[in-house]
Structures are given as C-alpha cells and as structure tokens.
Amino acid sequence: MDARSPILNVSALSVSVPEKLRIGGGQGDLRLVDGVSFQIRSGERLALVGESGSGKSMTARALMQLDRDVVLKGSVCWDGTELLGAAPRRLREIRGAEISMLFQDPMTALNPVLTIGEQVAEPLLVRGVSKKNAYRKAAQILDRLHVPKAKERLRAYPGQFSGGMRQRVVMAAALVAEPKLLIADEPTTALDVRVQEQVLDLIEEQSRELNLAVLFITHDLATVAGLAQSVVVMHHGKFVEQQNVDDLFSKPQHPYTRGLLASVPRLDADPNRRLLTVEDYMANHGGESLG
C-alpha cells in the first residue's frame, strides 16, 4: 500500500444525541461533533487537541461506533470501506484487529474478574486462534511492552497491577492482533507524570517499529509536541485547523490555537500578571467567532 494515501479518511463527521435521549431534557438534538474532517496515513501519528467538552473523545468513539444512543452522520472511510452503516459483523472484524483503542483510565478499562492473560489474548481468541497460541502471543506482546515476568503474570488479575502496568496491559490487548491504527483516548491523563512519559515512549516506540498509525487524543500540548507529526485542533465540536506539528507551534493560524498555546503557564512569567486565557485571545478577535 502506498504510504502517501490515507488509510483513514474522515469527512464531515458529526455526532449528535437525539432530543428524547438528552439527559436533563433540553430542546432539539444535541450536536457534540459538527462536521469534522481529517485523514491519517499509514504509520502517521496524528494528535487531536481540544479543551474538555470539545468533542475530541466523541470523535474517537464515533470512529469505532462505540456509543449506541448517538446519531452519526458524514463518512468514516477505512482502507477503502465505509464504516458508517456497515454491518455489525464487519465492524467486529475491524475492531481490535485493524483499529484498536486505548482508554483514558486503565483502572476501569480492565475487567476486574477476568485474568490478564484472557483479556490480552481475547482479540485473538474471539477470532478462532487456539488458546495456546493466543496466550503465547499475549505473553510475547507483554514482554515487548516491558512487563516483567510476562508469562507468569498472565494468570494474575488487574487488581494486582499498578496503574502504569495496567495501561501496558491495555496496550498489549490493543496491539496483540497487530492493528494498523491505534486510537489513544487521553491514555496518560489518569497516570502520574513519570509513568505518563513511559507510556508515551512506548506508544512512539511501537508506532515506529510496527508502522502503526496513531490517533492521539489529548488536551496536553506538551505531549503533542513530543509525539505527534501533525495536529488537528477542535473547539466546541468543530474543526479549527490541521497543521504539521512544527508549524502549529511556530505559526498557529487560528486565534483559538494561538490562545491555546499562549495560555500554557510559563515558569519565567511575571507572577504579578494574570494568566491569559483562551477567551482573552478570542475576545481580541471577536470577528472570527466560532459560534
């Protein structure tokens, strides 16, 4: 496959909650993501950045169609096939084997009553791989993600692991069937700083070694700088801009992006001056309101 042509092509994707399912009532359908488009090429690391509530997680979940109650519109084209409206069976084939996902909180993403081995090997087990082979592969991948004594650990339960170890287990389960795209939904938010770095390094390492494309969802610009090659900025469910990572930091186009970059607090800043917020920047550019 040509490295230049995108493997995932998202165009005009919108996600909304129908009026009768809105929690707390309210008029009309609630639009969470509004016409977002972007592409990912094979092996590319793309970051999706935005404040909380900007719809970046909803976008990621919509790619996998994980939410039952939302209405999806637009197009999600994976490797030449349209995923929106695809048969559940086809979706199941893709989930875990071609696209897989890392979740925010590794403490809740693992089933507490099933063994690590079973949960890591599961993407293979449900595809008819024999138990012996699946567990062997599970041990291999845990080993590759630097989980010590991987083979013995297969029989352990998630409760016996620390947060960083659990995120490695989640990653192992996501990577065991050798997918082409990994969607990482704020995979480091729930971890402490030192462990965060290890997990990010691991993601980058796997991406390079396996030519794995990564869609990285985060609100942390520092992470973006270290990991991604290009960045999509989202605000209020809408697409703001897409840039390659160096350009984004050196010459941001949109005032929202400029605001986002400038509101990162600096250690050498004058302590007597109030920190600027995104709103300050947006106010100065009132004409370019995002609605």
Binding site: L66, R95, S100, T108, E122, P123, A173, A174
Partner: peptide
C-alpha cells in the same frame, strides 16, 4: 455501562 465493556467491544468481542 462500564469502561471495560467498551474496551471489550473495541477489541471486537461479539
């Protein structure tokens, strides 16, 4: 409704 079910769905579990 828990995360581990969503994770299992994302792994392609029927």
């Amino acid at each position: 409704k828990s995360d581990y079910i969503t994770f299992a769905v994302s792994k392609g579990v029927p």
